[in-house]
Structure formats: structure tokens, C-alpha cells
Design a protein around this nucleic acid. Sequence first.
DNA 1: TACGCGTGGTG
DNA 2: TCACCAAGCGT
Length: 355
Amino acid sequence: MHKQDTFFSESLLNWYAENQRDLPWRGTRDPYKIWLSEIILQQTRVAQGLPYYERFIERFPTVKQLAKAEEQEVLRLWQGLGYYSRARNLHACVRKVESEYGGIFPEGYAELQKLPGIGKYTAAAIASFAFHESVPVVDGNVLRVLARYFGIAQDIGEAKNWSVFFSLAQKQLGSFPPQIFNQAIMEFGAVQCKPGMPNCETCPVRIGCYAAQEKQQLALPVKVKKTKIRPRYFTYWLVQNQEGEVAVQERKDTDIWKGLYHFPLLETESLPKEEEVLKALPAGLFIQELPSGGSVSVSPVIKHVLSHQHLFIRFIHVKEASVSQKGPWRWVNTEQLQELPKPIVIDKYLQEYLF
DNA sequence: TACGCGTGGTG
DNA sequence: TCACCAAGCGT
């Protein structure tokens, strides 16, 4: 390989040696810690995920301890982080590792992908960081860095283009230590070659960079796909019984906040009128037993309502998609709704109705 | 394969 | 203010 061929990779390695952040999952080869950090960091910034990582490691230092936990406790620790299927798969994953792999994570890139919640990226991360397997990671950072440096205009949102970037990443990885190169290229993307305008003035590879030379930093990478947002109006009834307990409902459908708890609600496509809200008031409330442990995980809106200690109807505007919720209520003490997540989108049309 | 899943930061 | 998007994955 000619020197010119390794300029990009060697520059990244040098940059990483000087600029890497000190993070708790770095400098370990424990696959459990690496796996946990990777799941938490999927589509999530370090600053947002870091406190969750610390709490999970403190509460569940080992595979065995996490595998023994109830799913509700795992969800409760995950509250506020979003993408709750990650928490359910996290739990299912350690249970599978415990039952089918003797509590030890399997080593191979292919074998790791058989575990729930572990796809190509996470498998590559674990295989390279923990087991030094020479397989490239391809995440949002890598896609951006490669697209900009090599001037690749293919849509990173199209699945068929993934192999283009994988092959290029593999070529750049070459025979460099995968556990270092993979961290380096991702860290470079997160810190230096950021989304939006990158720090080209201080960039060690700007000389060879297509985007920097052609001023295409904001045009690359190309991503056509747009996430479409449609408004959802959730009107909650905060219902209290004579013991001061509040009616809540577990969200079981495949929809946002699955597995978390909500107040009884009416969902509409537009802001409902008062008569509509009152007409839809649920008639058949009944009492159920709580999940074991007497503590439940709750969705973000509940925290907002409880924190203001209102007994009102609220209109919550949520920018997501899907179906409304039907099913049984249960009563819980407000003290049981512990360690609540932060509220999401709170609407500006809030109205209040005293019961 | 395309789409849905959360929350928070950014320009 | 708001569109974009962030260490992706499952279906």
C-alpha cells in the first residue's frame, strides 16, 4: 500500500490519540460494558446517554444481575431516554446470553447479530472493541466522514448503498487495529467532522477532503429520506379515587411508549372540542393489581402532569404517529411513580377542567 | 424494503 | 421557530 493510501487512516489515528474523550466504556474489553454503552448510544448523544450508562452499571454490574431483573425495572431505569424497544431488547438480550451462552457474550460479528437489539453496527462495535475482530463499524458518523472525504453522493438513507460505505470503511480500516481505528473514525465524526458545518480549519485531513476542497460540507452526506411528522392530540383524564390513587394504563400496542404507563386518554387528529372530550370520558374504570414490586415505569407526559399536581384535563400535542389506546386501567399511588422522565412536547393550547 | 420508534441539541 | 439529526434496529 502506498503512503498516499494510508494518509486518511493514519491521520485519523493520530487525531484520535490527541483528541479522544475520556469515556467510561473506553479502555475496557468487557463485552458487557461495551454492549451496554452501544445500545444506549444508538441514535443518542454521549451527553444524553452517559448518566444512564452510569446508573445501569451501578445497578447491574454484570450480565447475570441484569438478566435477573424484571423488565419493568429495566424500563424504569430507561425512562426518558427514548426508543424503549432498546430497553426491552436489552433485557431479552442478556437473558439469551445467560440461557444460551452461559452468561458470556459470543465473540463473532455474525454470532452477535443473532442477539436481540444487536444489528450490523453494534455487532461490529462489540466485535472490534472487545474482541479486536477486524470488521468496520458503519454508523452515522462513519457515513458522514466517508461521504465528505471521498465525495460520495450516494444516498446514505438507501439500504442498497450501505455496502458501498461498508467496503470503503473496510478498505480504510485495512490492517490497522480495529479497536482503535473504529473508535477514531466515529470520534472524528462526532467531534471534528460534525453534522452541520464541520471544523475544517483545524482538520488534519482537509487537504485530501473532497467536501472541504469543493465546499460541499453541507451537501454531504446526501440523505433524501425525510421523517414525516404528523400531529397527535392526546387528551388525558387525570382520575383520582378516594384513596388518592390515580388511574393509569400500560401501553401495550406497537406504538410510541410501548410498555410504559399513561393516564386514560382520548386521541384525536385535531384539537378536540370540550364536548367531545367530556363525551368520551371512560365509563368503566376498574381496579387491577399492580405489577410485582408495586412500582411502574411511566411515559414522559405523566411526569409533566404530576409535577404540576393538576387534576385537570390536559391537551398534549405529540409529534408522532399511530393508534389510540384502549384497555384496562389500574390505580397507583403518586409516590409509586418514581424517577420520572422529562416531559416531551407540551402543547400551547393547554386547557384546564376541574372535576 | 420502508417505515416507525424518543428525546434533546443545534443553527 | 423549527427542520434536521444523533454511536440503529426490528418488522
